[in-house]
Nucleic acid binder design. Structure first.
Length: 577
RNA sequence: GCGCCCGUAGCUCAGUCGGAUAGAGCAUCGGCCUUCUAAGCCGAGGGUCGCAGGUUCGAUUCCUGCCGGGCGCACCA
């Protein structure tokens, strides 16, 4: 379609003896109104100034050229002021969409944009200092869907979780757990000032008591805290993995910061940068010259006391990602980290990579509402609603779909009561219901001995009505929508698409019968008129076995697309509800 | 003070690399099941796209400045 337009453009340019510096890429879109045809393009208006002709004139030239060149594709090519081109596809050509879906099956919608490129998507990466909360859930759902999208676009995708199991937070965790541990043994201790107060710390401490009894009491505080820290980290990480498992999200790699440091990557990275004079010593600390790469100021990587900063680890970690052969790095971060982006971009460039090879998707805050009031959350105070609690309340499918319904950079109020109360008319059920309805249709058909035929074996003219074409048109836009969603890393487009497709399926389902009525008794007779004419007419339409077969075959393709779309979101496509 | 994100129907949000009459869900009101799943369908009402300028054939979309909300501006992570 687009290529047809391109060649037509060239024809017109040549035949009119026009020279222009650059030919724009023509764009086609689904028009907002059906009377404007199946597809439309504003390309005539776009090139008119370059041609030095009136848009309407250019459009007319293009229209006649296209009509002549692609007569088998277009029923009509219309021109509308101020210069739109509106195309009407020949009804017979729409069947090709259905054939394509049947032939490709679950790979319908897959593309080649990312072919041969390796990308690593890092997401969640919550510190193992407590359970995951709802905010992490949003990041998890987004990272998972983004990874799926990239995969359908042809990328080789690695899903990675970075474990911050080194540094100050771990020491604080150890101190907190050890304090609780001592309390279990009847000691009174002053709890660390910046310690973690959550009740889960008690749980971990009790588990530690179970594991080693009172043996830690005899050790020096330093060693005991280290042991506590390791135990707690391992415990909490297990819990995190478990929660993500329940949420249906898997990682290909759990990358430990401690292992990164143990392997010496941190020193190597800094040495590397020192050699380039991008890390320097000043005021007793080591600094990364990030201001050379548009960061507002230089950043400390090694403090006066000799400790490395978090940034130092991150620099090493991202360098290692490239070293492992990834062409581009994608990070899903909480929006409160946005100030961190320039310095990481600086790091990427400092190692000689392009800024574009590093991409951050920011996920805005999730505010949890209960009874219309905001629930204050803080990990330190231990007062927050865990992801697990939310999943238990509304289910993994609904939670994921909810998280993905909005663009990631807008704030999201997750109203628990609402999510629970609405669980029966939640959008996710609306989409899943469409899938289940078709499945049910097939079950009933099977029980009556009716087969769902291949799209190649049906009478194509039976699915060329206005309502069928409307549905097929929506199916045909799936691959383009999916690619756009992948390139922009915006899974919410998929949720909106699926809701539209489901709506069209439901409409069609209500308007047209697919299987013949079970008792072929007399029609109702006199009581007409209350119902809308068109609907009444449809109910009376004659259902031949061929028509049933054709519609079943079409339904099969709708079902495939819904299933494919839900799979991208990580949401299940049930056959029964 | 500086930087980033957001401001669209009563509510929650799509749409925005400039295009034709700005859309959906919820909520409100009125209809549709003795036949394939009513978790559904059909219809109605509801808008100065935060405000003011600018760019042009055309701006909700791009630019500037305000106003309002959120989040950052550590030798914390």
């Amino acid at each position: 379609m687009v290529t047809a337009l391109s060649t037509a453009l060239e024809h017109v340019r040549d035949s009119e003896n026009l020279t222009i510096p650059s030919m724009p890429e023509p764009t086609v879109e689904l028009p907002k109104q059906e009377k404007w045809g199946d597809l439309s393009s504003n390309v005539a208006m776009a090139v008119a100034p370059k041609f030095g002709r009136a848009p309407l004139k250019v459009a007319e030239l293009l229209a006649s050229t296209l009509k002549a060149d692609c007569d088998s594709l277009f029923e009509r090519v219309d021109v509308a002021p101020p210069g739109f081109l509106n195309f009407t596809i020949k009804p017979g050509r729409w069947i090709e969409v259905l054939s394509l879906i049947e032939d490709l099956g679950e790979s319908f919608g897959s593309g080649q944009v990312g072919k041969g490129k390796r990308v690593v998507v890092e997401f969640v990466s919550a510190n193992p200092t407590g359970p995951l909360h709802v905010g992490h859930g949003r990041g998890a759902a987004l990272g998972h869907a983004a990874s799926n999208l990239l995969q359908t676009a042809g990328y080789d995708v690695q899903r990675e979780y970075y474990i911050n199991d080194a540094g100050r937070q771990m020491r604080m965790l150890g101190a907190s757990v050890f304090a609780r541990y001592q309390e279990c043994h009847g000691r009174t201790v002053t709890f660390p000032e910046d310690g973690y107060h959550g009740t889960y710390i008690h749980t971990v401490a009790e588990a530690l008591v179970q594991e080693c009894g009172g043996t830690l009491l005899d050790l020096s505080a330093e060693v005991a805290e280290k042991r506590s820290s390791e135990f707690a980290c391992q415990r909490l990480l297990e819990r995190i993995k478990q929660d993500l498992g329940v949420f249906g999200i898997e990682f290909s790699e759990w990358y430990s910061e401690a292992s990164l440091i143990a392997a010496g990557h941190l020193e190597h990275s800094l040495d590397d940068l020192k050699a380039k004079d991008l890390v320097f010593f000043d005021e007793g600390a080591w600094w990364f010259r990030s201001s050379q790469f548009q960061d507002e100021k230089d950043r400390v990587v090694a403090k006066q006391n000799g400790d490395y900063t978090y940034l130092a680890s991150d620099i090493a970690y991202h360098r290692d990602k490239f070293a492992r052969g990834f062409d581009s790095l994608i990070n899903i971060w909480g929006a409160d980290h946005h100030g961190y982006i320039p310095r990481m971009e600086a790091a990427v460039q400092a190692f000689g990579y392009q800024k574009e090879q590093f991409r951050v998707v920011l996920v805005q805050m999730v505010s949890l509402l209960r009874d219309g009031r905001k629930v204050e959350m803080s990990k330190r105070s231990g007062e927050f609603v865990t992801l697990r609690e939310v999943i238990d309340e509304v289910g993994a499918d609904a939670a994921k779909f909810f998280f993905l319904m909005r663009r990631s950079d807008s704030h999201f109020d997750f109203d628990l009561e609402l999510a629970k109360r609405q669980s029966s008319d939640n959008p996710v059920y609306y989409v899943q219901y469409a899938h289940a309805r078709i499945a049910s249709l097939f079950r009933v058909a099977e029980s009556r001995g009716i087969q769902v035929p291949s799209i190649h074996d049906i009478d194509h003219t039976l699915v060329m009505g206005q309502d069928e074409i409307r549905l097929i048109k929506q199916l045909s836009s799936y691959p383009g929508m999916l690619e756009g969603s992948a390139v922009s890393l915006e899974p919410h487009r998929v949720t909106f698409y699926l809701q539209e497709l489901a709506a069209q399926l439901h409409t069609y389902y209500n308007k047209h019968r697919i299987l013949p009525p079970i008792d072929s008794g007399e029609a109702s007779g006199s009581s007409e008129s209350i119902v809308d004419d068109e609907v009444a007419h449809s109910h009376r339409e004659h259902l031949s076995p061929e028509l049933t077969a054709a519609r079943l075959a079409m339904m099969k393709q709708v079902q495939t697309v819904i299933r494919n779309g839900l799979a991208v979101l990580g949401v299940s496509a049930p056959d029964q509800m």
